[in-house]
C-alpha cells in the first residue's frame, strides 16, 4: 500500500505541474487550452527526434521544451488574437473550439509523420530506499523536478514584479492596464510558459514509461481534471489536486484496474464541482 501511495505522489506532482499551466492560462484570458497535452507531446516528440539524431539528453530535452514554448507563444499571437477581442461567453467558447482544433492538428500531423515515435529518457541506477520503499531513480528525479519547478513557479508569482503582474491580470484586467501592464504580453508569455511546463511533464513522465505520439488527449484530459479539482485559476490548488488525484489514480489502478482510472478521476472531478465549486482551496466566490 505504501509503495502504491508513493507512486501516486510521484504521479501526482507531475499532474500538478501539468494542471498549473492550464489553470493559469484559463485564469488570464478565459481560454481553456484543450491542446495542452498535445503541446506537451509535441515537445516530447521534438526531443525524441533529437535523441534519435544523436543529440545528448540535455540538448534534446531543451530543444523540445523550446519548441513547445515557441508554438504556444505563436498560437497566442496569431490564432488567439480574435479570441481576446471578445468578452465573456463568446471568448470562452471560441478559445475552447480553436484550441480543440489545434489539438486535432497536432495529433494528426504527429501521428501521420511519426506514427511510432516515443520519448524515453532512461535514468540509470539501482532503486533508492525511501522509508522502506525502493523507488526508481527516474521516479525520484521526476518528482524532484516537479517539486522544484512548482516551488520556483509559486515564488515567481508571489514575490517578483512580473509574477505580481500575471496575478493582477487574472484578478482584474482593466486594473492591470491602468497600472501600465499589457495583458496581451502577459497572456502570450504565460501560454508559452505553460506549453514549456506541459512538455516538461511529458519529459519527466518518460523517465518511468515511454511517452508515445498519441498521449496528447490523455494528458489534456488529466490537466483538465486537475485544473477543475484544484479550482480554475489557482496554482496551489492545482498542485494539491494533482497529488490527490495521483494517489487516487494509482490506488484505483492497483486495487481495481487501470481501465477504470480515468472514470474514477472524472468522477472525482465531478464530485469536486458538486461539493466545492471553486476547487479544493477555492475562496468561495472567485
Amino acid at each position: 500500500m505504501k509503495a502504491v501511495v508513493f507512486d501516486g505522489v510521484v504521479l501526482g506532482l507531475q499532474f500538478g505541474l501539468l494542471g498549473v499551466g492550464l489553470t493559469v492560462v484559463y485564469g488570464l484570458g478565459g481560454v481553456l487550452n484543450l491542446a495542452h497535452g498535445q503541446l506537451a507531446v509535441l515537445g516530447a516528440m521534438v526531443a525524441a527526434l533529437r535523441l534519435d539524431a544523436g543529440a545528448s539528453v540535455g540538448v534534446a530535452v531543451l530543444t523540445g521544451l523550446a519548441a513547445a514554448g515557441a508554438i504556444g507563444l505563436l498560437l497566442d499571437r496569431t490564432l488567439l488574437r480574435p479570441v481576446y477581442r471578445r468578452r465573456g461567453e463568446p471568448r470562452v467558447l471560441l478559445g475552447l473550439l480553436l484550441m480543440l482544433g489545434v489539438a486535432f492538428v497536432i495529433d494528426g500531423v504527429l501521428g501521420w509523420r511519426y506514427p511510432i515515435e516515443a520519448l524515453r529518457v532512461r535514468i540509470a541506477g539501482a532503486p533508492i530506499d525511501v522509508l522502506g520503499v525502493g523507488m526508481r531513480r527516474g521516479s525520484l528525479l521526476a518528482s524532484a523536478i516537479a517539486l522544484g519547478v512548482g516551488a520556483v513557479l509559486v515564488a515567481f508569482l508571489r514575490f517578483t514584479t512580473a509574477g505580481k503582474a500575471v496575478r493582477s491580470v487574472i484578478e482584474d484586467e482593466v486594473g492591470a492596464q491602468l497600472c501600465g501592464i499589457n495583458p496581451a504580453t502577459v497572456r502570450a508569455l504565460v501560454l508559452g510558459l505553460s506549453a514549456v511546463l506541459a512538455a516538461l511533464v511529458a519529459v519527466t513522465r518518460s523517465m518511468t514509461a515511454p511517452v508515445t505520439v498519441d498521449a496528447g488527449i490523455d494528458l489534456t484530459i488529466l490537466a483538465l481534471i486537475v485544473a477543475v479539482v484544484g479550482g480554475l485559476g489557482s496554482v496551489s490548488g492545482a498542485f494539491a489536486a494533482g497529488v490527490l488525484l495521483g494517489i487516487v489514480n494509482t490506488v484505483s489502478a492497483h486495487y481495481i484496474g487501470s481501465y477504470v482510472t480515468t472514470i474514477v478521476l472524472l468522477g472525482a472531478a465531478a464530485l469536486t464541482i458538486v461539493a466545492r465549486p471553486s476547487g479544493l482551496l477555492g475562496r468561495g466566490q472567485e
Binding site: R167, S168, E171, D172, V174, G175, R283, E286
Partner: peptide, 11 residues
C-alpha cells in the same frame, strides 16, 4: 482612478 476602482481583490 476609475469610479468602479478595479482593484486586485485577493492581493
Amino acid at each position: 482612478v476609475p469610479a468602479d476602482r478595479h482593484l486586485f481583490p485577493n492581493m
